[in-house]
């Protein structure tokens, strides 16, 4: 168990370092001149002032070789310093720290809604004996995956804010302002959860151990509760890290639609102004969120699936047995 935890921790650190490296490769080494991009923003197509360009190059270290740049940036990032924004001059760490709580609330609520809806749809579909209900429920996730998030947000705004005046259209004030963005963000995620979970449940229903359980005389409810749900949810648990990461990506669109302050808005602004240090900081933080979620999932995984700890003696009290 200890080696398992240590190995996961080391893996998480490695992924984080690699994510930093990838973002560095993309942002600093793609065949484009970051300084020209930065200056281009303010200059509006005029000729770039060579003196100012040289000054910027020196300030952001672009005059150094790529390896030096990389080492300098990595060292700074390890101390928690993500550099300063080009457009505003503010420290990137501070910008992200300010924006993050709002987005955490939004993403947290969206995750709860999505889990409730996704798990509800999939479980009900495999609980019911009515074929029409199952078909109806299973038709929902493909629909949820197909609708563009930004469009859902606008339709909800139109209906609930401009037609029925139930929720505020913009801003970060109070819980009411959180509802529509969270629902918008949750729809796509709920659809994915429902798809992965119902796939898992479908496979679990067909597994021979289900037949064994029925042959013991177990009821349908018991088979679903004790065997199918637990086995069928394993694939969903495994992709939870990716899903939470994508949730963070989704806030870019949703916070823009609802004009909320937060992580996503920060991304949108930074990309629009091509503020490279901020973009890199945001990418690294998003990867960190993914890595942390995955780490939690990995640590919880042996409790759900004893096979993860190969050869060991069953792990400590899962107590998940007969229920």
């Amino acid at each position: 168990m200890v080696t398992y935890v240590l190995r996961r921790l080391a893996g998480a650190a490695a992924v984080l370092w690699a994510a930093f490296t990838v973002s560095f490769l993309i942002l600093y080494l793609l065949p484009s001149d970051p300084v020209a991009i930065m200056l281009d923003q303010g200059a509006g197509g005029e000729r770039v002032d060579p003196a100012r360009a040289a000054e910027l190059r020196e300030r952001y270290g672009f005059d150094q070789g790529p390896v030096r740049q990389y080492v300098t940036l990595l060292g700074r990032t390890l101390t928690g310093d993500l550099g300063t924004s080009i457009s505003s001059g503010a420290p990137v760490t501070g910008l992200i720290a300010d924006a993050f709580p709002e987005t955490a609330k939004l993403a947290g609520l969206a995750l709860l809604l999505a889990l409730a809806a996704g798990v509800g749809i999939a479980t009900l579909a495999y609980w019911t004996r009515a074929a029409w209900l199952r078909d109806l429920l299973l038709a929902l996730p493909p629909l949820g995956v197909a609708v563009p998030g930004f469009w859902v947000g606008l339709v909800l705004l139109h209906l609930f804010s401009f037609t029925w005046f139930l929720f505020p259209a913009v801003g970060n004030e109070g819980f009411a302002s959180l509802v529509l963005p969270a629902v918008t963000l949750a729809i796509g995620l709920a659809a994915v959860i429902a798809q992965v979970l119902s796939q898992g449940l479908r496979e679990a229903w067909r597994a021979p151990y289900v037949e064994t359980a029925f042959a013991k005389g177990s009821s349908r409810a018991r088979v679903l509760g004790a065997h199918v749900l637990r086995n069928g949810s394993l694939p969903t648990v495994a992709v939870l890290g990716v899903l939470v990461g994508n949730l963070l990506g989704g806030t870019v669109v949703v916070e823009t639609v609802f004009s909320r302050q937060g992580f996503g808005r920060l991304v949108e602004n930074a990309v629009t102004t091509q503020d490279i240090p901020v973009v890199q900081g945001l990418v690294v933080v998003a990867a960190a969120v993914f890595v942390l979620t995955s780490l939690l999932v990995d640590l919880a995984h042996p409790l759900l699936d004893p096979r993860v700890l190969r050869g060991g003696h069953g792990g400590s009290g899962t107590g998940g047995g007969a229920r």
Binding site: Y209, T212, A213, H227, R230, N231, L304, R307, G320
Partner: peptide, 10 residues
């Protein structure tokens, strides 16, 4: 495959 992989044998 006829035993539930995530439930104790007992």
């Amino acid at each position: 495959t006829a035993l539930d992989p995530v439930m104790r044998v007992g």
